[in-house]
């Protein structure tokens, strides 16, 4: 269909289908409820994970003196910093979801903003995944030391289990997740290039 054919088909379409009863206050109420539920669902898993991590990292700090060894203390402080960084990334994402001016930006600006947001989000996602995995290991080491008085770092069996697990995790990230990640980034970069030309 040429552009002229498209125009004819377009003009033939009816323009009135929306219900008369769609009053703004009704729409406002309905959408507010929908947004709240939507955000809860998408963020629930990540926020839940952060809370669980927060709990265990908090416990490690509360019983900091039980750690005894300097390297375990460094691990605990590292866990706090990592958790803080993960929370910051989550906050940035939340702000990105809410901060959006529909009326004040042009279409091109919105497209550009969304593409940049997508690239940022994909990079953050990979970082979050790797950091969460590392945090999981550190929390396990700290908790075992605090509650069982057992130092996993000096236990060869722990390393023999951890190494293949980490290798499998790395392979999964490299072959599966990274592939999707690159695809999403390329699409966003294509949009940015199109806007520039």
């Amino acid at each position: 269909m040429s552009i002229e054919g498209l125009k004819q088909a377009w003009d033939a379409l009816p323009g009135e289908t929306a219900s008369e009863a769609l009053r703004p206050t009704r729409i406002q109420n309905a959408l507010r409820a929908r947004y709240r539920r939507g955000i809860h669902r998408t963020m629930l898993l990540e926020l839940g994970l952060l809370l669980v991590y927060g709990y265990f990292v908090g416990l490690s700090l509360f019983r900091f003196d039980h750690l005894e060894k300097p390297y375990l203390e460094i691990l605990a402080l590292g866990a706090v910093a990592t958790l803080g960084y993960l929370i910051l990334l989550q906050l940035i994402r939340l702000v990105g979801l809410f901060r959006f001016a529909y009326a004040e930006q042009s279409y091109v600006e919105v497209l550009e903003g969304l593409a940049r947001q997508r690239i940022r989000h994909e990079r953050f996602r990979l970082t979050k995944l790797v950091l969460s995995y590392l945090l999981l290991i550190v929390v396990a080491i700290l908790q075992v030391k605090i509650y069982n008085e057992y130092d996993l770092v000096r236990e060869p069996r722990f390393w023999w289990t951890l190494l293949p697990l980490s290798l499998a995790f790395l392979l999964l990230v490299r072959h599966r997740i990274r592939k999707y990640h690159q695809k999403a980034i390329s699409a966003a970069e294509r949009t940015l290039r199109e806007l520039e030309t």
Partner: peptide, 13 residues
Amino acid sequence: RPRTVALAPELLE
């Protein structure tokens, strides 16, 4: 986002 969340009929016709 979830594609749709059922809305109360009285909220939206």
